[in-house]
Simulated scan of single mutants.
Amino acid sequence: MTLEHAILAIDGSDAVRVVTGAVPPNTKLAFVYALPAPTVFERLAVPSVRETPSPRQTFIREVAVYGSATSATEGFVKLASATLSAHERPGLQTELVLHRRDAVRWVRLELAHGLDTPGPQVWLEFSEIIGQGRQDEAPLDTGFSGQWKGRGLALVLDQAGAAVAGCYDRQGKLEGSVVGRVLHATGREPRTGVASSFIASLGEKGTVQVLRSTNGAPFKHYVGERGAPRPLPACNAPTAPTLGCDSVIHGIQFDFDSATLRPSSAAVLDSLHQGLAAARSARVVIEGHTSSEGEESYNRSLSQRRARAVVDELVRRGLAADRLTASGAGESRPIAPNDDEAGRSLNRRVEVRCQA
């Protein structure tokens, strides 16, 4: 059982994956997750409960979700639970029975036993836990300036408000934005043109936790400690970050399935307004993009309405309305895989195009 297994259990993909090595069929697993802000779960479910055609692999049978408002080790109460059985066809989900609706900051997912017990040793499988509910707005984390190093990770960042710029590896340059405690960024290696996508958060003692997808590959997890990486990336003193022309912005957040802007987007919109107010471009196109969930025509309409909401906010902040145009691209131009939530969260974005 590794950190990778913990990520797979919440990554937004319903693919069935092995989460243990060979273990007794009555083995119990537990993963603890820190949430960015107090959260009330109104629904929890497990999709794709099915058995792999292998005599040594079996799907988890018992699932329980506990929550704590106190710490990662104390104060847990049972929020929901279920005993699973194999689904008759693809696309089904098993609802967990909700026991409480407490606001929690930490979640412990407990998995136990297998549907089948063919022998003394089995490989336990699981898909994911789906959680839906209400989460408080998290304050903007302003700690994404500095240098980090780790196995497979060399990162130098500078943060100004919600905007972040920096570099990675030897030559790669990235730009992104922060909402709450999470940084979303995209980068490119100039020599090869290979693109990478990043989702990062800061941990205890200044560490950085990074999910990274390179050239469209599945996301991998990295951990970095503060300190100058060796060799130091070429842009060890990155240009002060700004939002404006040519920005790809992930920090503009909307309510689910809606064009209503969330309050947490205010800092990003302020930075974007400042950047565009200083730009000399006569025309600016605000282009909305979505993930691939839902019908293509609906996603195009949703992205158009979200782009229009951003334009309206920029006008309210003082930009001239005749400079701004809203455009919706829907799901047509993804920049990351839509196979899991990490990729889908990067595809939900706003791009800024400036014209002379």
Rank of each mutant, 00 (worst) to 15 (best):
H250F: 04
A320D: 14
L261S: 08
N299Y: 05
S201W: 12
L124T: 08
G216K: 01
E313L: 03
I130F: 10
T207P: 11
R308T: 15
R56G: 12
L8V: 00
R101Y: 13
N299M: 08
G75W: 00
W106N: 06
P238E: 05
R50W: 14
R308F: 13
V23Q: 05
Q93T: 15
A103H: 01
A234N: 08
A45V: 13
P38C: 09
A82C: 03
A72P: 01
P139W: 11
P139I: 11
V350G: 07
G161A: 06
L96C: 04
F198Q: 04
I7E: 06
S292P: 07
P118L: 01
E204P: 10
K78S: 11
E128D: 08
A72N: 07
E225A: 06
R316L: 12
A80H: 03
T27Q: 14
T27L: 13
V248D: 01
T73V: 13
D322S: 08
F219E: 03
N215E: 15
I10L: 09
V310M: 06
H87F: 12
I252M: 02
V285H: 14
I129G: 06
S297T: 14
G133L: 11
R212Q: 00
G12V: 02
K173L: 14
G318H: 09
L314T: 00
V63P: 08
T192F: 01
A321W: 09
D116Q: 14
G288S: 07
S327A: 13
E287L: 13
P218R: 03
L269D: 09
R89M: 10
C167F: 10
R283M: 14
R134W: 14
L3T: 13
D136Y: 09
E331D: 15
A356S: 14
A163F: 06
A307N: 00
D246E: 12
A154D: 14
G114W: 07
R191H: 14
R262S: 04
V285G: 09
S271I: 06
A15C: 13
A64D: 01
K78Y: 12
C354R: 01
A163H: 01
K78D: 12
K149C: 12
V46A: 03
Y33P: 01
D339M: 09
C167K: 06
D246W: 12
P47V: 04
N347Y: 00
